[in-house]
Design a protein around this nucleic acid. Structure first.
Lengths: 252, 252
DNA sequence: CTTTCAATTATGTATATACATATCTAAGCG
DNA sequence: CGCTTAGATATGTATATACATAATTGAAAG
Protein backbone atom coordinates (compact mmCIF):
# COMPACT_ATOMS: atom_id res chain seq x y z
CA UNK A 1 0.00 0.00 0.00
CA UNK A 2 1.23 2.98 -0.28
CA UNK A 3 0.36 5.29 0.05
CA UNK A 4 0.31 8.66 -0.73
CA UNK A 5 0.72 11.36 1.78
CA UNK A 6 -2.92 12.07 1.27
CA UNK A 7 -3.58 8.72 2.81
CA UNK A 8 -1.65 9.74 5.83
CA UNK A 9 -4.07 12.56 6.40
CA UNK A 10 -6.46 11.87 9.17
CA UNK A 11 -9.85 11.66 7.58
CA UNK A 12 -12.67 13.39 9.39
CA UNK A 13 -14.50 10.17 10.02
CA UNK A 14 -11.59 8.81 11.95
CA UNK A 15 -11.95 10.42 15.29
CA UNK A 16 -9.08 11.18 17.55
CA UNK A 17 -10.35 9.33 20.52
CA UNK A 18 -10.46 5.98 18.86
CA UNK A 19 -6.97 6.11 17.40
CA UNK A 20 -4.99 2.98 17.73
CA UNK A 21 -1.51 2.88 19.11
CA UNK A 22 0.24 2.26 15.81
CA UNK A 23 -1.70 5.18 14.38
CA UNK A 24 -0.59 7.36 17.25
CA UNK A 25 3.04 6.40 16.73
CA UNK A 26 2.65 7.08 13.05
CA UNK A 27 1.06 10.47 13.69
CA UNK A 28 3.72 11.44 16.19
CA UNK A 29 6.52 10.70 13.79
CA UNK A 30 4.76 12.25 10.84
CA UNK A 31 4.15 15.42 12.82
CA UNK A 32 7.78 15.71 13.75
CA UNK A 33 8.74 15.31 10.12
CA UNK A 34 6.29 17.76 8.60
CA UNK A 35 6.97 20.29 11.35
CA UNK A 36 10.62 20.19 10.42
CA UNK A 37 11.75 19.03 13.84
CA UNK A 38 13.27 16.00 12.15
CA UNK A 39 14.91 17.22 8.97
CA UNK A 40 15.59 15.21 5.83
CA UNK A 41 18.40 12.76 6.47
CA UNK A 42 17.64 12.56 10.18
CA UNK A 43 17.77 9.02 11.50
CA UNK A 44 14.61 8.37 13.38
CA UNK A 45 14.78 6.10 16.45
CA UNK A 46 15.24 2.39 15.84
CA UNK A 47 12.28 0.11 16.17
CA UNK A 48 13.54 -1.23 19.48
CA UNK A 49 13.88 2.30 20.84
CA UNK A 50 10.32 3.19 19.88
CA UNK A 51 9.23 -0.12 21.32
CA UNK A 52 10.60 1.02 24.67
CA UNK A 53 9.31 4.58 24.36
CA UNK A 54 5.75 3.49 23.68
CA UNK A 55 5.89 0.32 25.73
CA UNK A 56 4.63 -1.87 22.93
CA UNK A 57 5.84 -4.69 20.75
CA UNK A 58 8.06 -4.34 17.72
CA UNK A 59 5.24 -5.40 15.41
CA UNK A 60 3.24 -2.35 16.39
CA UNK A 61 6.12 -0.01 15.78
CA UNK A 62 6.92 -1.84 12.58
CA UNK A 63 3.41 -1.33 11.29
CA UNK A 64 3.67 2.42 11.80
CA UNK A 65 7.12 2.68 10.23
CA UNK A 66 6.24 0.46 7.28
CA UNK A 67 3.34 2.69 6.45
CA UNK A 68 5.42 5.83 6.75
CA UNK A 69 7.90 4.25 4.37
CA UNK A 70 5.16 3.40 1.95
CA UNK A 71 3.88 6.94 2.16
CA UNK A 72 7.33 8.09 1.16
CA UNK A 73 8.00 10.09 4.30
CA UNK A 74 10.84 7.92 5.44
CA UNK A 75 13.27 5.52 3.87
CA UNK A 76 14.23 2.34 5.64
CA UNK A 77 17.60 0.66 5.29
CA UNK A 78 18.43 -2.66 6.82
CA UNK A 79 21.12 -2.54 9.41
CA UNK A 80 21.24 1.25 9.20
CA UNK A 81 17.87 2.46 10.37
CA UNK A 82 15.10 4.67 9.05
CA UNK A 83 15.71 8.13 7.65
CA UNK A 84 13.55 11.14 6.89
CA UNK A 85 13.18 11.70 3.17
CA UNK A 86 12.99 15.02 1.39
CA UNK A 87 10.19 17.22 2.59
CA UNK A 88 6.79 16.54 1.24
CA UNK A 89 4.95 19.24 -0.55
CA UNK A 90 1.98 21.06 0.72
CA UNK A 91 -1.65 20.34 0.37
CA UNK A 92 -3.38 22.87 -1.74
CA UNK A 93 -6.38 24.63 -0.45
CA UNK A 94 -9.32 24.60 -2.74
CA UNK A 95 -11.91 27.19 -2.08
CA UNK A 96 -15.46 26.17 -1.65
CA UNK A 97 -16.96 28.11 -4.44
CA UNK A 98 -20.36 29.59 -4.81
CA UNK A 99 -21.67 28.96 -8.27
CA UNK A 100 -23.75 32.11 -8.33
CA UNK A 101 -20.67 34.21 -7.75
CA UNK A 102 -18.80 32.22 -10.32
CA UNK A 103 -21.43 32.79 -12.98
CA UNK A 104 -21.89 36.44 -12.16
CA UNK A 105 -18.14 36.94 -12.33
CA UNK A 106 -18.45 35.92 -15.96
CA UNK A 107 -20.94 38.74 -16.45
CA UNK A 108 -23.84 36.39 -17.08
CA UNK A 109 -27.22 36.29 -15.38
CA UNK A 110 -27.49 33.44 -12.92
CA UNK A 111 -30.49 31.19 -12.52
CA UNK A 112 -31.02 28.25 -10.21
CA UNK A 113 -33.45 25.42 -10.85
CA UNK A 114 -34.54 22.54 -8.63
CA UNK A 115 -35.03 19.44 -10.74
CA UNK A 116 -35.96 16.82 -8.17
CA UNK A 117 -36.09 16.33 -4.43
CA UNK A 118 -36.49 12.95 -2.78
CA UNK A 119 -36.43 12.00 0.88
CA UNK A 120 -35.39 8.43 1.46
CA UNK A 121 -33.62 6.01 3.73
CA UNK A 122 -29.88 5.61 3.13
CA UNK A 123 -28.91 2.71 0.90
CA UNK A 124 -25.62 1.14 -0.04
CA UNK A 125 -24.90 3.58 -2.85
CA UNK A 126 -25.53 6.46 -0.51
CA UNK A 127 -23.00 5.12 1.94
CA UNK A 128 -20.41 5.15 -0.81
CA UNK A 129 -21.00 8.83 -1.20
CA UNK A 130 -21.63 10.07 2.33
CA UNK A 131 -19.52 7.61 4.25
CA UNK A 132 -20.24 4.17 5.57
CA UNK A 133 -21.38 5.45 8.94
CA UNK A 134 -24.53 6.99 7.51
CA UNK A 135 -27.85 5.40 8.25
CA UNK A 136 -31.29 6.86 8.49
CA UNK A 137 -33.08 9.46 6.41
CA UNK A 138 -31.41 11.59 3.84
CA UNK A 139 -32.39 14.07 1.20
CA UNK A 140 -31.41 13.57 -2.44
CA UNK A 141 -31.49 16.70 -4.58
CA UNK A 142 -30.82 17.34 -8.20
CA UNK A 143 -30.42 20.92 -9.35
CA UNK A 144 -29.23 22.84 -12.33
CA UNK A 145 -27.36 26.11 -12.45
CA UNK A 146 -27.71 28.30 -15.52
CA UNK A 147 -25.46 31.00 -16.91
CA UNK A 148 -27.58 33.13 -19.16
CA UNK A 149 -29.65 30.89 -21.40
CA UNK A 150 -27.37 27.89 -21.10
CA UNK A 151 -26.94 25.27 -18.40
CA UNK A 152 -23.73 25.90 -16.48
CA UNK A 153 -23.60 22.77 -14.39
CA UNK A 154 -25.77 20.12 -12.79
CA UNK A 155 -25.65 19.43 -9.08
CA UNK A 156 -26.43 16.07 -7.56
CA UNK A 157 -26.52 16.25 -3.80
CA UNK A 158 -27.16 14.11 -0.75
CA UNK A 159 -27.86 15.69 2.62
CA UNK A 160 -27.62 13.67 5.80
CA UNK A 161 -30.81 14.54 7.67
CA UNK A 162 -29.38 13.15 10.88
CA UNK A 163 -26.82 15.95 10.74
CA UNK A 164 -29.10 18.63 9.29
CA UNK A 165 -32.72 17.85 10.23
CA UNK A 166 -33.82 21.34 9.21
CA UNK A 167 -33.21 20.43 5.59
CA UNK A 168 -36.34 18.28 5.60
CA UNK A 169 -38.50 21.40 5.91
CA UNK A 170 -36.65 23.46 3.37
CA UNK A 171 -38.03 23.66 -0.15
CA UNK A 172 -34.88 24.59 -2.09
CA UNK A 173 -36.95 26.27 -4.77
CA UNK A 174 -35.54 29.73 -4.36
CA UNK A 175 -32.34 28.93 -2.54
CA UNK A 176 -29.73 26.49 -3.79
CA UNK A 177 -28.75 23.86 -1.22
CA UNK A 178 -25.10 24.93 -1.19
CA UNK A 179 -25.55 28.47 0.12
CA UNK A 180 -28.36 27.29 2.42
CA UNK A 181 -26.15 24.66 4.00
CA UNK A 182 -23.31 27.07 4.53
CA UNK A 183 -25.67 29.24 6.53
CA UNK A 184 -26.95 26.31 8.55
CA UNK A 185 -24.00 24.09 9.32
CA UNK A 186 -20.45 25.11 10.03
CA UNK A 187 -18.29 22.60 8.23
CA UNK A 188 -15.18 21.33 9.88
CA UNK A 189 -13.61 19.39 7.05
CA UNK A 190 -14.07 18.77 3.38
CA UNK A 191 -12.70 16.54 0.72
CA UNK A 192 -12.66 17.25 -2.97
CA UNK A 193 -12.31 14.76 -5.76
CA UNK A 194 -11.81 16.24 -9.18
CA UNK A 195 -11.87 14.16 -12.30
CA UNK A 196 -12.76 14.08 -15.93
CA UNK A 197 -15.54 11.89 -17.26
CA UNK A 198 -17.59 11.32 -20.35
CA UNK A 199 -21.15 12.58 -20.06
CA UNK A 200 -23.72 9.85 -19.66
CA UNK A 201 -27.06 10.11 -21.42
CA UNK A 202 -28.84 11.84 -18.57
CA UNK A 203 -26.12 14.36 -17.89
CA UNK A 204 -25.70 15.10 -21.57
CA UNK A 205 -29.42 15.86 -21.83
CA UNK A 206 -29.32 18.06 -18.73
CA UNK A 207 -26.38 20.07 -20.01
CA UNK A 208 -27.33 20.14 -23.67
CA UNK A 209 -24.32 18.12 -24.73
CA UNK A 210 -23.94 15.02 -26.81
CA UNK A 211 -23.39 11.80 -24.90
CA UNK A 212 -19.73 11.06 -24.28
CA UNK A 213 -18.69 14.70 -24.27
CA UNK A 214 -15.88 15.40 -21.79
CA UNK A 215 -16.95 16.90 -18.48
CA UNK A 216 -15.25 18.06 -15.34
CA UNK A 217 -16.69 16.44 -12.25
CA UNK A 218 -16.09 17.91 -8.83
CA UNK A 219 -17.28 15.96 -5.84
CA UNK A 220 -17.20 17.34 -2.37
CA UNK A 221 -17.85 15.65 0.93
CA UNK A 222 -18.29 17.83 3.95
CA UNK A 223 -18.19 16.97 7.62
CA UNK A 224 -19.27 18.86 10.66
CA UNK A 225 -17.88 17.70 13.96
CA UNK A 226 -16.84 14.33 12.56
CA UNK A 227 -20.28 13.74 11.11
CA UNK A 228 -20.94 13.53 7.37
CA UNK A 229 -23.14 16.43 6.32
CA UNK A 230 -23.40 16.35 2.56
CA UNK A 231 -22.01 14.92 -0.62
CA UNK A 232 -22.34 16.90 -3.78
CA UNK A 233 -21.30 16.20 -7.33
CA UNK A 234 -21.06 19.08 -9.78
CA UNK A 235 -20.75 18.20 -13.44
CA UNK A 236 -19.52 20.92 -15.79
CA UNK A 237 -19.04 20.75 -19.52
CA UNK A 238 -15.31 20.80 -20.28
CA UNK A 239 -14.06 24.21 -21.33
CA UNK A 240 -16.74 25.86 -19.24
CA UNK A 241 -14.85 25.44 -16.04
CA UNK A 242 -11.46 24.94 -14.48
CA UNK A 243 -10.27 24.62 -10.94
CA UNK A 244 -7.49 26.83 -9.78
CA UNK A 245 -5.46 26.29 -6.68
CA UNK A 246 -2.63 28.50 -5.53
CA UNK A 247 -0.37 27.84 -2.66
CA UNK A 248 3.00 28.59 -1.23
CA UNK A 249 5.14 26.46 1.08
CA UNK A 250 5.00 29.14 3.74
CA UNK A 251 1.31 28.46 4.26
CA UNK A 252 1.99 25.60 6.55
CA UNK B 1 -3.78 7.79 7.87
CA UNK B 2 -3.20 5.40 5.71
CA UNK B 3 -1.41 3.75 4.41
CA UNK B 4 0.18 1.13 2.91
CA UNK B 5 -0.26 1.02 -0.63
CA UNK B 6 3.39 0.91 -1.07
CA UNK B 7 3.08 -2.75 -0.83
CA UNK B 8 0.82 -2.69 -3.79
CA UNK B 9 3.85 -2.02 -5.84
CA UNK B 10 4.94 -4.77 -8.09
CA UNK B 11 8.49 -4.37 -9.24
CA UNK B 12 8.86 -5.00 -12.96
CA UNK B 13 11.31 -7.83 -12.60
CA UNK B 14 9.36 -9.44 -9.86
CA UNK B 15 8.31 -12.89 -10.76
CA UNK B 16 6.47 -14.87 -8.21
CA UNK B 17 9.49 -16.05 -6.35
CA UNK B 18 10.75 -12.78 -4.95
CA UNK B 19 7.42 -11.37 -3.81
CA UNK B 20 6.27 -11.88 -0.31
CA UNK B 21 3.12 -13.79 0.33
CA UNK B 22 1.03 -10.90 1.55
CA UNK B 23 2.11 -8.97 -1.51
CA UNK B 24 1.05 -11.82 -3.74
CA UNK B 25 -2.36 -11.98 -2.10
CA UNK B 26 -2.67 -8.24 -2.45
CA UNK B 27 -1.71 -8.34 -6.12
CA UNK B 28 -4.10 -11.20 -6.85
CA UNK B 29 -7.03 -9.34 -5.37
CA UNK B 30 -6.07 -6.04 -6.88
CA UNK B 31 -5.78 -7.63 -10.30
CA UNK B 32 -9.22 -9.12 -10.05
CA UNK B 33 -10.62 -5.74 -9.09
CA UNK B 34 -8.91 -3.67 -11.76
CA UNK B 35 -9.66 -6.29 -14.41
CA UNK B 36 -13.32 -5.95 -13.58
CA UNK B 37 -13.71 -9.60 -12.60
CA UNK B 38 -14.82 -8.40 -9.18
CA UNK B 39 -17.12 -5.46 -9.76
CA UNK B 40 -17.83 -2.67 -7.31
CA UNK B 41 -20.02 -3.96 -4.52
CA UNK B 42 -18.68 -7.50 -4.85
CA UNK B 43 -17.94 -9.11 -1.51
CA UNK B 44 -14.45 -10.50 -1.63
CA UNK B 45 -13.72 -13.71 0.29
CA UNK B 46 -13.56 -13.46 4.07
CA UNK B 47 -10.19 -13.45 5.74
CA UNK B 48 -10.65 -17.01 6.95
CA UNK B 49 -11.43 -18.16 3.41
CA UNK B 50 -8.30 -16.54 2.01
CA UNK B 51 -6.38 -18.02 4.91
CA UNK B 52 -7.40 -21.45 3.68
CA UNK B 53 -6.88 -20.67 0.02
CA UNK B 54 -3.33 -19.46 0.52
CA UNK B 55 -2.50 -21.73 3.43
CA UNK B 56 -1.31 -18.89 5.64
CA UNK B 57 -2.27 -17.15 8.85
CA UNK B 58 -4.97 -14.55 9.20
CA UNK B 59 -2.41 -11.86 9.98
CA UNK B 60 -0.91 -12.25 6.54
CA UNK B 61 -4.27 -12.02 4.82
CA UNK B 62 -5.19 -9.14 7.09
CA UNK B 63 -2.09 -7.22 6.11
CA UNK B 64 -2.97 -7.50 2.44
CA UNK B 65 -6.60 -6.53 2.96
CA UNK B 66 -5.79 -3.66 5.30
CA UNK B 67 -3.52 -2.19 2.70
CA UNK B 68 -6.09 -2.60 -0.03
CA UNK B 69 -8.55 -0.81 2.20
CA UNK B 70 -6.10 2.02 2.81
CA UNK B 71 -5.46 2.19 -0.88
CA UNK B 72 -9.18 2.72 -1.30
CA UNK B 73 -9.75 -0.30 -3.51
CA UNK B 74 -11.95 -2.07 -1.01
CA UNK B 75 -14.08 -1.11 1.92
CA UNK B 76 -14.15 -3.28 5.01
CA UNK B 77 -17.18 -3.60 7.22
CA UNK B 78 -17.15 -5.50 10.48
CA UNK B 79 -19.38 -8.45 10.58
CA UNK B 80 -20.24 -8.01 6.89
CA UNK B 81 -16.99 -8.53 5.05
CA UNK B 82 -14.91 -6.61 2.54
CA UNK B 83 -16.38 -5.06 -0.58
CA UNK B 84 -14.97 -3.70 -3.80
CA UNK B 85 -15.35 0.06 -3.93
CA UNK B 86 -16.22 1.98 -7.02
CA UNK B 87 -13.08 2.86 -8.91
CA UNK B 88 -11.51 5.96 -7.50
CA UNK B 89 -7.92 6.91 -7.64
CA UNK B 90 -6.51 8.10 -4.40
CA UNK B 91 -3.60 9.82 -6.01
CA UNK B 92 -3.18 13.31 -4.74
CA UNK B 93 -1.57 15.41 -7.39
CA UNK B 94 -1.72 18.54 -5.39
CA UNK B 95 0.26 16.99 -2.62
CA UNK B 96 2.60 14.68 -4.41
CA UNK B 97 4.34 16.12 -7.36
CA UNK B 98 6.11 12.93 -8.20
CA UNK B 99 4.30 10.79 -10.70
CA UNK B 100 6.49 7.82 -9.91
CA UNK B 101 5.14 7.75 -6.39
CA UNK B 102 1.67 8.24 -7.72
CA UNK B 103 1.94 5.29 -10.06
CA UNK B 104 3.59 3.10 -7.50
CA UNK B 105 0.89 4.02 -5.04
CA UNK B 106 -1.51 2.36 -7.44
CA UNK B 107 0.56 -0.77 -7.23
CA UNK B 108 1.86 -0.64 -10.78
CA UNK B 109 5.41 -0.62 -12.11
CA UNK B 110 6.51 2.83 -13.21
CA UNK B 111 8.41 3.74 -16.35
CA UNK B 112 9.48 7.13 -17.61
CA UNK B 113 10.14 8.00 -21.23
CA UNK B 114 11.57 11.14 -22.82
CA UNK B 115 9.79 11.82 -26.10
CA UNK B 116 11.38 15.05 -27.24
CA UNK B 117 13.66 17.80 -26.01
CA UNK B 118 14.06 21.15 -27.72
CA UNK B 119 16.03 24.20 -26.70
CA UNK B 120 14.68 27.41 -28.17
CA UNK B 121 14.12 31.09 -27.65
CA UNK B 122 10.88 32.05 -25.90
CA UNK B 123 7.99 32.92 -28.22
CA UNK B 124 4.57 34.38 -27.66
CA UNK B 125 2.92 31.05 -26.85
CA UNK B 126 5.62 30.33 -24.30
CA UNK B 127 4.97 33.61 -22.55
CA UNK B 128 1.35 32.61 -22.14
CA UNK B 129 2.48 29.57 -20.26
CA UNK B 130 5.46 30.77 -18.28
CA UNK B 131 4.48 34.36 -17.74
CA UNK B 132 4.95 37.51 -19.79
CA UNK B 133 8.24 38.38 -18.17
CA UNK B 134 10.05 35.46 -19.77
CA UNK B 135 12.52 36.13 -22.51
CA UNK B 136 15.60 34.27 -23.57
CA UNK B 137 16.33 30.57 -23.86
CA UNK B 138 14.05 27.87 -22.60
CA UNK B 139 13.80 24.13 -22.76
CA UNK B 140 10.70 22.40 -24.09
CA UNK B 141 10.28 18.78 -23.02
CA UNK B 142 7.70 16.17 -23.81
CA UNK B 143 7.67 13.02 -21.72
CA UNK B 144 5.44 10.09 -21.08
CA UNK B 145 4.86 8.26 -17.81
CA UNK B 146 3.77 4.65 -17.88
CA UNK B 147 1.94 2.56 -15.33
CA UNK B 148 2.60 -1.06 -16.13
CA UNK B 149 2.17 -1.60 -19.85
CA UNK B 150 -0.08 1.41 -20.36
CA UNK B 151 0.63 5.12 -20.68
CA UNK B 152 -0.36 6.88 -17.48
CA UNK B 153 0.00 10.47 -18.58
CA UNK B 154 1.90 12.71 -20.94
CA UNK B 155 3.91 15.63 -19.68
CA UNK B 156 4.50 18.78 -21.69
CA UNK B 157 6.95 21.07 -19.96
CA UNK B 158 8.73 24.36 -20.39
CA UNK B 159 11.76 25.21 -18.28
CA UNK B 160 13.02 28.75 -18.02
CA UNK B 161 16.77 28.43 -18.59
CA UNK B 162 17.33 31.90 -17.17
CA UNK B 163 16.10 30.56 -13.84
CA UNK B 164 17.62 27.07 -14.13
CA UNK B 165 20.66 27.19 -16.43
CA UNK B 166 21.79 23.75 -15.26
CA UNK B 167 18.84 22.23 -17.11
CA UNK B 168 20.59 22.82 -20.42
CA UNK B 169 23.21 20.19 -19.56
CA UNK B 170 20.79 17.63 -18.19
CA UNK B 171 19.70 14.81 -20.47
CA UNK B 172 16.40 13.83 -18.80
CA UNK B 173 16.71 10.31 -20.14
CA UNK B 174 16.84 8.54 -16.81
CA UNK B 175 15.40 11.22 -14.58
CA UNK B 176 12.08 12.90 -15.18
CA UNK B 177 12.26 16.69 -15.16
CA UNK B 178 9.88 17.01 -12.22
CA UNK B 179 11.99 15.23 -9.60
CA UNK B 180 15.14 16.75 -11.07
CA UNK B 181 13.80 20.28 -10.74
CA UNK B 182 12.68 19.71 -7.17
CA UNK B 183 16.25 18.79 -6.31
CA UNK B 184 17.63 21.83 -8.13
CA UNK B 185 15.33 24.72 -7.41
CA UNK B 186 13.36 25.42 -4.27
CA UNK B 187 9.98 26.62 -5.39
CA UNK B 188 8.33 29.45 -3.57
CA UNK B 189 4.90 29.46 -5.17
CA UNK B 190 2.84 27.34 -7.47
CA UNK B 191 -0.44 27.54 -9.25
CA UNK B 192 -2.55 24.66 -10.44
CA UNK B 193 -5.24 24.72 -13.04
CA UNK B 194 -7.31 21.60 -13.36
CA UNK B 195 -9.76 21.05 -16.16
CA UNK B 196 -11.32 18.50 -18.42
CA UNK B 197 -10.68 18.43 -22.14
CA UNK B 198 -11.21 16.22 -25.14
CA UNK B 199 -8.05 14.53 -26.35
CA UNK B 200 -6.63 16.01 -29.54
CA UNK B 201 -5.16 13.73 -32.17
CA UNK B 202 -1.60 13.86 -30.85
CA UNK B 203 -2.54 13.33 -27.21
CA UNK B 204 -4.91 10.53 -28.14
CA UNK B 205 -2.11 8.76 -29.98
CA UNK B 206 0.31 9.26 -27.10
CA UNK B 207 -2.12 7.87 -24.56
CA UNK B 208 -3.63 5.15 -26.69
CA UNK B 209 -7.08 6.73 -26.70
CA UNK B 210 -9.45 7.65 -29.46
CA UNK B 211 -9.55 11.31 -30.40
CA UNK B 212 -12.09 13.27 -28.38
CA UNK B 213 -11.86 10.98 -25.36
CA UNK B 214 -12.25 12.89 -22.08
CA UNK B 215 -9.02 13.70 -20.28
CA UNK B 216 -8.06 15.41 -17.07
CA UNK B 217 -5.53 18.17 -17.62
CA UNK B 218 -3.46 19.52 -14.77
CA UNK B 219 -1.27 22.51 -15.40
CA UNK B 220 1.20 23.80 -12.90
CA UNK B 221 3.27 26.95 -12.95
CA UNK B 222 6.04 27.26 -10.45
CA UNK B 223 8.00 30.27 -9.31
CA UNK B 224 11.20 30.60 -7.36
CA UNK B 225 11.82 33.97 -5.80
CA UNK B 226 9.25 35.67 -8.01
CA UNK B 227 10.84 34.25 -11.13
CA UNK B 228 8.98 31.76 -13.34
CA UNK B 229 10.74 28.42 -13.26
CA UNK B 230 8.60 25.97 -15.15
CA UNK B 231 5.21 25.34 -16.64
CA UNK B 232 4.02 21.80 -16.97
CA UNK B 233 0.86 20.29 -18.38
CA UNK B 234 -0.05 16.73 -17.44
CA UNK B 235 -2.76 15.03 -19.45
CA UNK B 236 -4.37 11.95 -17.96
CA UNK B 237 -7.06 9.75 -19.48
CA UNK B 238 -10.32 10.24 -17.57
CA UNK B 239 -11.05 7.42 -15.16
CA UNK B 240 -7.36 6.80 -14.80
CA UNK B 241 -6.91 9.70 -12.48
CA UNK B 242 -8.57 11.98 -10.01
CA UNK B 243 -7.35 14.77 -7.84
CA UNK B 244 -8.07 14.62 -4.16
CA UNK B 245 -7.69 17.46 -1.77
CA UNK B 246 -8.60 17.41 1.88
CA UNK B 247 -8.58 20.41 4.08
CA UNK B 248 -10.01 22.01 7.14
CA UNK B 249 -10.83 25.68 7.68
CA UNK B 250 -8.07 26.00 10.23
CA UNK B 251 -5.51 25.47 7.50
CA UNK B 252 -6.21 28.76 5.87
C1' DC C 1 -45.93 -6.90 16.88
C1' DT C 2 -42.35 -4.32 18.36
C1' DT C 3 -38.53 -3.54 21.23
C1' DT C 4 -34.50 -5.19 23.81
C1' DC C 5 -30.68 -7.83 24.46
C1' DA C 6 -27.49 -11.38 23.93
C1' DA C 7 -24.95 -14.38 20.72
C1' DT C 8 -22.47 -14.68 16.60
C1' DT C 9 -19.37 -13.13 13.23
C1' DA C 10 -15.74 -10.54 10.73
C1' DT C 11 -12.72 -7.26 11.19
C1' DG C 12 -9.14 -4.28 14.09
C1' DT C 13 -5.31 -4.16 16.90
C1' DA C 14 -1.75 -5.97 19.68
C1' DT C 15 1.63 -9.47 21.55
C1' DA C 16 5.60 -12.71 21.63
C1' DT C 17 8.15 -15.29 18.77
C1' DA C 18 10.77 -16.95 14.84
C1' DC C 19 13.55 -16.93 10.99
C1' DA C 20 15.09 -14.49 6.64
C1' DT C 21 17.75 -10.86 4.54
C1' DA C 22 20.59 -6.96 3.79
C1' DT C 23 24.45 -4.49 5.43
C1' DC C 24 27.99 -2.81 8.29
C1' DT C 25 32.03 -4.06 11.33
C1' DA C 26 35.74 -6.37 12.62
C1' DA C 27 38.57 -10.34 12.95
C1' DG C 28 41.44 -13.51 10.45
C1' DC C 29 44.45 -15.02 6.68
C1' DG C 30 47.42 -14.97 2.72
C1' DC D 1 48.07 -4.39 3.07
C1' DG D 2 44.12 -6.24 0.79
C1' DC D 3 40.82 -9.76 0.70
C1' DT D 4 37.63 -12.99 2.73
C1' DT D 5 34.68 -14.34 6.32
C1' DA D 6 32.10 -14.44 10.36
C1' DG D 7 29.43 -11.89 13.53
C1' DA D 8 26.31 -8.24 14.87
C1' DT D 9 22.43 -5.45 13.82
C1' DA D 10 18.08 -3.55 11.96
C1' DT D 11 14.61 -4.32 9.12
C1' DG D 12 11.16 -7.70 6.51
C1' DT D 13 7.93 -11.19 6.75
C1' DA D 14 5.26 -14.73 8.86
C1' DT D 15 2.92 -17.37 12.68
C1' DA D 16 -0.26 -18.43 16.54
C1' DT D 17 -2.76 -16.26 19.79
C1' DA D 18 -5.66 -13.01 22.27
C1' DC D 19 -8.95 -9.71 23.13
C1' DA D 20 -11.57 -5.51 21.43
C1' DT D 21 -15.09 -3.59 18.49
C1' DA D 22 -18.79 -3.08 15.27
C1' DA D 23 -22.71 -4.98 13.02
C1' DT D 24 -26.10 -8.33 12.24
C1' DT D 25 -29.05 -12.09 13.59
C1' DG D 26 -32.32 -14.12 16.26
C1' DA D 27 -34.54 -15.10 20.45
C1' DA D 28 -36.78 -13.44 24.54
C1' DA D 29 -39.54 -10.03 26.81
C1' DG D 30 -42.85 -6.45 26.87
Amino acid sequence: MPDSIADLVETPESGDAATSLYQRILNDIRDRIVSGEWEPGYRIPFEHELTEEYGCSRMTVNKALSQLAKAGLIERRRRSGSFVRRPQSQAAVLEIHDIRIEVEALGLPYRYELMSQIKRRAGAGDRDRLGSSVSGQLLALKCRHHAGARPFCVEDRLINLAAVPEAADEEFIETAPGPWLIGQVPWSAAEHVIRAAAADAETAADLGLSAGAPCLVIERRTWSAERPVTHVRFTYPANAHAVVARFTPSDS
